[in-house]
């Protein structure tokens, strides 16, 4: 990607900061809620009182209860831990695969590039939903399956992006200089390439997070997600949709939290993109 001359647009930078601020507030807020929230609640996420099922929100149960009489507030916050945990792990996993893969292709070029990118082309051509279900059916649903399948989805975009960047950057003056100084590819990668690639990569990763939350939710909707009685946000929302008309609060609270979180990550990404563009 070509670096742009500074736009000299102070407003734009401010706006980037505004988005960053709002986004971080939301994300940090949700993370704190996920970490601390369950401690505030006197209920356990799996404790059932069947006679108290489907209660609307009140002073006792802030988010109401679910169809098995469990406290929805507690479950939603535990769900946040599960969902955010999955997403974090998935994003890191993708980074671990995509970064070296793309870097190898970009750095060595030629036959290596052709081969690696060829494999990517095949993988791109595959209907990913079908394959995700394939893997989950073979592995069985649950946390491991979700990690592996989600881990296999997003690195494609990442690898391609890294490869394109390395392709451009390896001809840059500072890299040529480092080469002339006799630095090995490993050192050049860590010292020269990575710091330069990081901001755009971070943007991509930040945009992948909402997608991963989405996909995990969809898998839960299909019944292939985390196993009961544990419930991710997706599982809670899927259950809420089923009871949408009788107990709307069961949909509203988890859905609202998903939305806020995704909004947060999107704003964060937007702000970061703005900043890198202005630099």
């Amino acid at each position: 990607m070509k670096r742009q001359a500074g736009s000299g647009c102070g407003r734009s930078r401010r706006r980037g900061n505004l988005h960053l601020l709002l986004g971080s507030l939301l994300v940090v807020g949700v993370v704190i809620l996920a970490l601390v929230g369950p401690l505030l609640s006197p209920y356990s996420p799996r404790e059932q009182v069947l006679a108290r099922s489907n209660r609307p929100p009140d002073g006792e149960h802030w988010f109401g209860t679910d169809s098995l009489g469990r406290d929805l507030f507690t479950r939603t916050l535990y769900g946040a831990r599960i969902s955010l945990g999955i997403v974090l792990a998935v994003v890191l996993l993708n980074l671990c695969i995509g970064l070296p893969y793309g870097a190898l292709a970009g750095w060595y070029g030629g036959l290596v590039d052709l081969l690696l990118m060829g494999v990517l082309d095949v993988l791109y051509g595959v209907p990913s939903l079908l394959y995700i279900i394939f893997f989950l059916v073979i592995l069985g649903p649950g946390l491991t399956g979700v990690f592996i399948t989600l881990g296999l989805v997003y690195w494609l975009d990442l690898a391609r992006q890294v490869r394109n960047q390395v392709l451009v950057l390896k001809e840059a003056d500072f890299v040529l200089a480092a080469r002339a100084l006799g630095l090995g590819p490993w050192q050049i990668f860590w010292q020269e390439l990575l710091p330069n690639m990081l901001p755009p990569l971070a943007v991509t990763l930040l945009f992948h997070i909402p997608q991963a939350i989405f996909l995990e939710a969809f898998l839960s909707y299909l019944g292939l997600g985390v196993q009961a009685p544990w419930a991710s946000w997706g599982a809670l929302v899927a259950e809420g949709v089923a009871n949408m008309r009788s107990a709307p609060w069961q949909l509203f609270f988890p859905a609202a939290l998903i939305s806020l979180t995704i909004l947060g990550f999107n704003l964060l990404g937007e702000g970061l993109q703005q900043l890198t563009r202005d630099d």
Partner: peptide, 15 residues
Amino acid sequence: PDSSEYRRLGEAIQE
């Protein structure tokens, strides 16, 4: 089997 009816029943009995 994965259907919400079986799952909810299972969760209740598990508890």
